[in-house]
């Protein structure tokens, strides 16, 4: 690998761009290409083999609510390789002191989440317990391609949430995307335990191994 190729790979990674590194395994001839829809693979090519290494950006987690659970969730998500953004218009909650090393957005959650443009590698979780803040974030998330949309709160709370979002025009299929009560049912009680249960569920859904259907 030439230094130039290495540096372009690093830049693509930092800028969250997909890129494919194509290598002829016999000759070592190498080039960077558009990632396309293909996966990382080896294919025969004449007498040689071609290795196409697709570099996809790291997954992202957007948290609505700079609350205690978010403080516990941020390091766990980062450990699992997620880039994390925390959204909370309450300046006193979303401080760099409470949330070092993450992106902080102080706009109202609908505007803030939309500005972060959640894609199919993004998970969005609302944690405020306040419909005034959670719902706008959820609405933007449900209209995006986010692979995971979760909402903290009890079944009862979620029932009322479903009523409000139905009134906003979402149908049952759209609302079934919401993982709520968010997190795997492992009896989590403390903020740290709840954070673990949420992260485990995000990972399971990301890899198509959801252990629990979204609660009705």
């Amino acid at each position: 690998m030439k230094r130039d190729v290495l540096d372009r790979l690093r830049a693509a990674r930092r800028e969250r761009r997909s890129v494919a590194l194509v290598t002829e395994l016999g000759t070592g001839v190498q080039r960077l290409a558009e990632a396309g829809a293909g996966r990382t693979r080896v294919e025969p090519a004449g007498n040689d083999e071609v290795f196409t290494h697709v570099f996809q950006p790291t997954p992202r987690l957007i948290l609505v609510g700079a609350v205690h659970i978010a403080q516990k969730l941020v390091p766990i998500a980062r450990l699992a390789g997620f880039a994390v953004d925390v959204v909370d218009p309450r300046i006193a909650f979303a401080t760099t002191e409470r949330f070092p090393d993450v992106g902080l957005a102080h706009d109202w959650p609908d505007k803030a989440v939309a500005a972060l443009s959640p894609d199919s590698a993004t998970a969005v979780v609302t944690l405020t317990h306040d419909p005034k803040l959670d719902d706008p974030g959820l609405i933007v998330a449900l209209r995006s391609r986010a692979f995971y949309v979760g909402a903290l709160g009890s079944r009862k709370t979620h029932g009322r949430r479903i009523e409000r979002l139905t009134a906003e025009g979402f149908d049952d299929a759209a609302l079934a995307r919401i993982r709520a009560p968010v997190g795997l049912p492992i009896g989590a009680i403390s903020p740290g335990e709840i954070a673990v249960s949420i992260m485990a569920d995000i990972i399971a859904v990301r890899h198509g191994r959801a252990l629990q259907a979204a609660a009705a």
Binding site: T58, R78, D101
Partner: peptide, 12 residues
């Protein structure tokens, strides 16, 4: 957004 450089094993 801040990319988790030190936690991105690929970039690391």
């Amino acid at each position: 957004m801040v990319a988790p450089d030190e936690n991105d094993d690929v970039l690391r």
